[in-house]
Design a protein around this nucleic acid. Structure first.
Lengths: 232, 232
DNA sequence: AAGTGGTCTAGACCACTTC
DNA sequence: AAGTGGTCTAGACCACTTT
């Protein structure tokens, strides 16, 4: 099971870039040069270049060549959701209520519009680790709350109304003091907690859901990574 | 400037998937079918499929076809660093000191190993927004602190010693109480702050730098997004 | 056996950059 | 004019899945 040729070419170029053999700004050997060197076709060499391009290592410039890019350490990938599965959710309350002002603003609701509110606590090892609160505009004739609750994950909650692939999520992370009912449920007193807010957007940009989570120390930190892939 | 054929094919398929025309688990038309339909070659159709694959919308299975994937809303892209440029750093202190225990642990330092400590405050509109503290193992004969300070961004600080493309960063986000010297500098009193820790790793996995940042409300929330690209 | 994706070839023409 | 990447063709053989 030897590697494909284009993989070997990509690996060889990657190694040379990462080891500093081709510093940032350098122009790599051209497609034709490499095709000759490896006794292969240009298409195969291009495939190798496209791998490195997708890794952000190089960028093509027509008429010039492939140029080694500076590393982008400002884009991080957040690992989120995996940890939440280590624990159990305890449902606190499902209700149809008039929204608080910040919620109403976030969902851009009209006057008198009610929302479905779902409150849950994540427990880990018997200790409350997070308080989770979701808000969905309430509309008669839409799937019932009971049905929706079968899906734990937020975006999937809208599967009946939208193609879930098409939904976008905007996340906002800060430290803030939770309201009383949250600090009581989490037993955290006055402490400020890591707060994660999520806004679910339809393909048309409509705000179709909003959630707030307060994470205690028991939840652990959020983690993010950047840089070249670990396997490479 | 009409779009390339493979772009049009990808766009057409993407639209059908996002609008729910091809639900999750569906098998898309085969490469040969589409090549016939668009009166083009298989290579061009493949290129279209590869775009959708890179977007995470589909996954190929040899002998079967391209299958529509469930959306992955658990991977978020953190937008970090861009906001920091809206403001000015004020240097507080550069010193060579014995590390505190947590720093020594994070960098896996031996006994007696000293570290270079760099403390800065980010001010935005005259208000302190963040406290920034970096630790680098001190070694004689390596680039001087003065030289290193010319580079503001953390990973770039190691440009002399490593090919910066090859560095990885692990980030950890939580809410915590800052030490006294931080809350004094930021004038935040007892409040817990958003805390961002970064560990810089060499290609070999060696821990070559560690940073801590405490962000006040003036810094604003961290933001992350997931879902299909905005332009698509 | 037939159909699918995975890899690869040996050309072609175009737009762009450099000399 | 020569070289570069960008797009595209019309084939080929392979490994895998389904019938």
């Amino acid at each position: 099971m030897s590697q494909a040729l284009y993989q070997r070419i990509a690996g060889s170029l990657r190694a040379r870039i990462l080891s500093g053999g081709h510093p940032v700004g350098d122009v790599l050997p051209s497609e034709n040069e490499l095709a000759d060197a490896y006794r292969t076709s240009r298409v195969t060499v291009r495939k190798a270049f496209q791998i490195l391009e997708s890794e952000g290592l190089i960028k093509p410039r027509q008429g010039k060549g492939y140029i080694v890019q500076p590393p982008r350490h400002s884009t991080f990938t957040l690992i989120f959701g995996a940890e939440a599965e280590q624990g159990a959710y305890r449902d606190l309350e499902v209700s149809i209520v008039p929204p608080e002002l910040p919620v109403s603003r976030m969902l851009a609701l009209g006057d008198g519009q009610l929302v479905i509110s779902i409150r849950r606590v994540l427990e880990r090892g018997g200790v409350p680790a997070a308080f989770d609160e979701k808000f969905i505009p309430y509309e008669r004739g839409k799937p019932t709350v009971e049905q929706e609750l079968e899906h734990a994950e937020f975006p999937e909650l809208f599967a009946g109304r939208f193609a879930t692939v098409s939904l976008r999520t905007e996340m906002s992370i800060r430290a803030s003091s939770p309201p009383d009912y949250v600090s009581r449920a989490l037993d955290t007193g006055e402490a400020q907690l890591l707060t994660v807010e999520r806004l679910i957007l339809s393909p048309e940009g409509q705000r179709i859901g909003f959630s707030r989570e307060w994470l205690t120390g028991a939840f652990g930190p959020l983690r993010a990574v950047s840089g070249p892939p670990t396997g490479g």
